[in-house]
Design a protein around this nucleic acid. Sequence first.
DNA 1: ACCTGAACACCGTTCAAGT
DNA 2: ACCTGAACACCGTTCAAGT
Lengths: 265, 265
Amino acid sequence: MLMSQPRHTPITTPQAPPAARPGKVGRPRKSALPETGALGRERIFQAALALIDAQGLAAFGIRGLATQLGVAPAAIYWHVASREDLVYGALSIALADVAQAMPPGSWQLRIQTVLRRFRATLRQHPHLAPAVANELGCNATLDTALMEHIVAALEEAHFDGQALVDAVNVVVAAMCGFATLELSTAPAGPDSAWGQACRAQVEGIDPARCPALARHQSELANHAFLMRWTGGMDNPLDTGFEAWVDVLIGGLEARSRVLLEARES
Amino acid sequence: MLMSQPRHTPITTPQAPPAARPGKVGRPRKSALPETGALGRERIFQAALALIDAQGLAAFGIRGLATQLGVAPAAIYWHVASREDLVYGALSIALADVAQAMPPGSWQLRIQTVLRRFRATLRQHPHLAPAVANELGCNATLDTALMEHIVAALEEAHFDGQALVDAVNVVVAAMCGFATLELSTAPAGPDSAWGQACRAQVEGIDPARCPALARHQSELANHAFLMRWTGGMDNPLDTGFEAWVDVLIGGLEARSRVLLEARES
DNA sequence: ACCTGAACACCGTTCAAGT
DNA sequence: ACCTGAACACCGTTCAAGT
């Protein structure tokens, strides 16, 4: 029984990673590539998204995805580089139609539409909310149509040069920021030990140390970030989001005015 | 050799979780509690933060933390409920002094200060950026002093009732949103395969399908969210952040004006 | 009250081998 | 080109036992 476990050998030199596998990064998608196998990246990502939607991000794994697809776990690695690649792929197809068929109208209305659509789409896949910031901070795989809409709208608002780049970043951050925070779910159920503790801390605010907070405690409790114990699906912050959109548009308009006046003088 | 592996028994009824351990959630911190042990939550969180800063969030684990503390892995579980608890604790102490010693001044200036401080603090612990949205969406463990400052500033700006709650959420989302997105790191090194692919896609933008995007391609490349292949530490978006702050303040001012006018009539 | 040893039940990933 | 079997090297977490 001493020699029956060759596993768990403690020391091995980690061999250098082998030459890149096919679908390592990006999707060349030459559109002429055979895709003869029964699997294929698209089917894998769809299944991954369905599984994440059903069970959450933490419970999602390659082994579960493999059984879902009726395939050996290792098979997935022929099409995809890593687990991270999978959630990124799932996020990509989930957000694919945010930019579809933008309605005509003022630049303000079009930017409002982008924000509202993003939030609505993320609400259909709330378990992906934690992945948005991680995966979307830098990458260009998201449909370029979305960026085109944003840039075109900001051009119309007279942004140009560095000011345009800045405005683009402001809009993208606004698009992601609120919904991501709103939908990041609580660790446990409605009245878990965690929820109770959170609630108790809010209710135990000291009016001496935090007078302003204490004054509005009852309105803020469970309705403000950092002071709520219910997730964004059960307890949406609708009016807060509308205020967010309003502040963004108002701030952009003010900035656009300043820009125009500086240009005239 | 058949009977030598009692491990990996496939089917076991998952026993109900035992009665809550001491440091399960929140920190009662009666301040009279002995804290006689050599460990203690504070020391554990400090060590966790140091480890996350050094190695990143993905590489951080309980086993590594245990060896760092010169202790058995299981020892940590007497003080802390889970790995998630650890990163949350680390984030809490990392952000602890965002609200320390707020300078006097107009409400606009104070809100600007909150945003700038949050970003500066997160830049000192960039590996925690992905955890911000996940852990900060709902919880009240963050120093209430921060919320007090925000609420007090917005009161001064004449927000009240639901409009105040909305404004608080707007400010908190703004505080977290930009910096989180900016600092979420690229999966790999500067010119990895991933970076190359990202760059290629940006440079391959089709001027026929995306005319506005193509017009500003050179300025946007590697300087805008979704179009950059360098992380926020090496490649900060300083002017974008200032625009963000500017838009927020401008938008809040406009909303405040509307509120006042409605109240006068 | 606090910590150790040792195991349990998983992971993601690799790699030779199949077809 | 695409997939399987089987293993490797880890995980987080639990639990009886120590002190």
